[in-house]
Design a binder for these strands. Structure first.
Length: 263
DNA sequence: ATGTCCACTAGGAGTGGA
């Protein structure tokens, strides 16, 4: 089974790119973030033509998340309880059947903007709610995945410039404590399970040629319960899909993909 | 180089967000 997460920065603008990704990489399930689209406008037909069913939690202009699956999928819930007024940022579904079914959540965490902005304490509170919510169902003996754009750089290794950015937004002790507390409910960062010492990024600013100058951050994660880690075969950050392709502009994020045993 | 891109409102180019 192949699972993936990708912040696509606008579904409308990224349709051709996403279809190419589905055709080339063939993930069984993928969490998408930053749809920037209302649910009523979501283009189900082109995804169905490729064999994918979608569940969506969108809104006009900003945010928005969806799960695409070519395995049977059933919506569990949409929206983080108590944080609905911070935008459409979370959706959870049961994917697949039998012993290999996944409890699959994808999320788009608040950016926070800067440490002196009102959104920063709201971001921290959002993570407090997320931890409480995840703690309610994550268990070691069932396969649960939380994936998406977390907008936190968990360690200095995950930043191209920790020396200058340490303490600034995405790089603060407060954010890192929230990320650690979330992991502590019984999750593992699947990329780090396989690559404990490798510096790799999942996001590069559009500005300043950041991608080619290798100035990125690792802020997109696949988190898995112990049962998922036991099924984990490999993880990759697909930098190829951060590159501009013929007639198509890339998202500023790369997809993250994992192979799990069975299914 | 504060150097890009997206969606929105408009019916063209500026604004807000990331």
């Amino acid at each position: 089974m192949q699972i993936a997460t990708w912040n696509i920065n606008g579904l409308r603008a990224r349709m051709d790119f996403i279809k190419l990704f589905l055709e080339e990489r063939e993930p069984d399930v993928i969490g998408l973030q930053e749809l920037k689209m209302e649910d009523g406008k979501f283009p189900h037909e082109p995804f169905e033509a490729l064999g994918y069913e979608a569940v969506t939690h969108g809104q006009k202009s900003w945010n928005g998340v969806a799960i695409l699956s070519r395995l049977p999928i059933e919506l569990i819930e949409a929206g983080l309880p108590g944080q609905e007024d911070f935008g459409s940022r979370l959706i959870r579904a049961r994917v697949g059947e039998g012993e290999f079914a996944l409890d699959f959540t994808t999320l788009y965490c608040p950016n926070g903007k800067s440490t002196d902005h009102d959104d920063f304490p709201r971001k921290l509170a959002w993570f407090d709610s997320l931890r409480k919510w995840a703690g309610g169902f994550v268990r070691s003996d069932t396969s649960a995945v939380l994936c998406g754009d977390f907008n936190i750089v968990p360690t200095g290794l995950d930043s191209w410039n920790e020396d200058d950015f340490g303490g600034f937004i995405f790089h603060t002790d407060e954010e890192r404590a929230r990320m650690a507390a979330l992991i502590d409910v019984g999750l593992s960062d699947l990329y780090r399970e396989r690559e404990p010492d490798t510096q790799a990024f999942s996001w590069w600013d559009y500005r300043g040629g950041s991608f080619h100058r290798k100035r990125g951050l690792r802020i997109d994660f696949l988190l898995g319960s112990k049962a998922v880690v036991e099924r984990l075969r490999s993880v990759e950050i697909d930098r190829d899909f951060r590159k501009k392709k013929e007639g198509m502009t890339a998202s500023d994020h790369a997809p993250v993909i994992a192979h799990l045993d069975a299914g």
